[in-house]
Design a protein around this nucleic acid. Sequence first.
DNA 1: AATATTTTGTACAATCAGGCACAAACGGTC
DNA 2: GACCGTTTGTGCCTGATTGTACAAAATATT
Lengths: 205, 205
Amino acid sequence: MNADKIPDIIIGRLPIYLRALQRLSDKGVQNTSSQELGDMIGISAAQIRKDISQFGEFGKQGTGYSIPFLIERLQSILKVNRIWDVIIVGMGDMGHALARYNGFANRGFKVTMLFDNDPKKIGQKVNNLEIFSMDVLSEKIKQNRIKVAMLTVPASAAQEVSNQLVKAGVKAILNYAPTHLNVPPDVRVQHIDPATHLQRMTYYL
Amino acid sequence: MNADKIPDIIIGRLPIYLRALQRLSDKGVQNTSSQELGDMIGISAAQIRKDISQFGEFGKQGTGYSIPFLIERLQSILKVNRIWDVIIVGMGDMGHALARYNGFANRGFKVTMLFDNDPKKIGQKVNNLEIFSMDVLSEKIKQNRIKVAMLTVPASAAQEVSNQLVKAGVKAILNYAPTHLNVPPDVRVQHIDPATHLQRMTYYL
DNA sequence: AATATTTTGTACAATCAGGCACAAACGGTC
DNA sequence: GACCGTTTGTGCCTGATTGTACAAAATATT
């Protein structure tokens, strides 16, 4: 085990491995190899072995990896061997879609609260969750010790809302607004911007 | 100019630069420096200068970069100085949200067709666009020479639909299904999976 | 039991990416 | 016109990342 300082680029691949392993597990497969896993997800076998070996010797020569065991290890490393309560701020179309998404369930997350500043939306329910006013955002975050938020407000409001989230104690923000967020170093941000992702591909067309 | 072989990691940053520049431009700013831009988006000034200089000498010592000029150059490099017709396959909540998203307009893309295999959805309109049957997917893609698609079908169907897209001529796929897609080397894929993005952050909590 | 096959974990090598620092160029001021 | 402050583009260096190859370990086969 070499837990001192794992590069972020390796951490970023672990969820990919985990997703593929869960897929294999769902199909009833019990064992796999770095070769098979690599073929599945388009990553070299050596890279997978090296990444995994950063955290311990989880495989066995000759037979590869036990899928249930490796899943358990990766979940534990990524801290998704528990359920994180997640909030959604901004109940436009994207917020709605995420609130109704059922893909979080077995991956360590549960959407527990929704927020918007539109009086017409406040009090309504989406997927059995009430939409709260932004006025109670900070209070609710602190009360429920929320650490993870998805931000689906317009770009013009994103930085200000982000500041509120951080001030209330949120440490991980999944940002759907097409703008950069300025946050303190102890807060993590991941950006999802379809136009940016598309532009990254058109270069090659 | 050194166009031989630009690393993908640099291409990936250009849309970020472009987005920030357009934001400045919208505020009426005419000039900027690598320093200012870097502070905005959390990237070192040296990196920005080096990335941009891969494509030519767009700046001027002492004064920095002309924003309209740099925007024009980046759009041209990324081939978004035109409008790409984009289709959405899979009209669940995410497909709906993307169909109604108005953030593509000035960034080089326009959603022009929607597809689903649910007879109840076929023929309905979303954002003034009719939902077509999957039966006509290939035909419509070829007819309209579609190169870019957003894939918002369930994971279980993603690979098969992806095959259809590729066979019909699509070269860039924005994949919202939580699964890896196997495509030929001349097809680009970008993955958007909220659970994966979240798991990448929980490690640090 | 001996041999062949598979597969891991890692040492080493090679490549890639990012930061530093500075000459050169530009605009403004005196 | 000389000087000053600013900012680019780039050469060099360092550190990070990936690929190669192989010993060791496990299983399968004869």
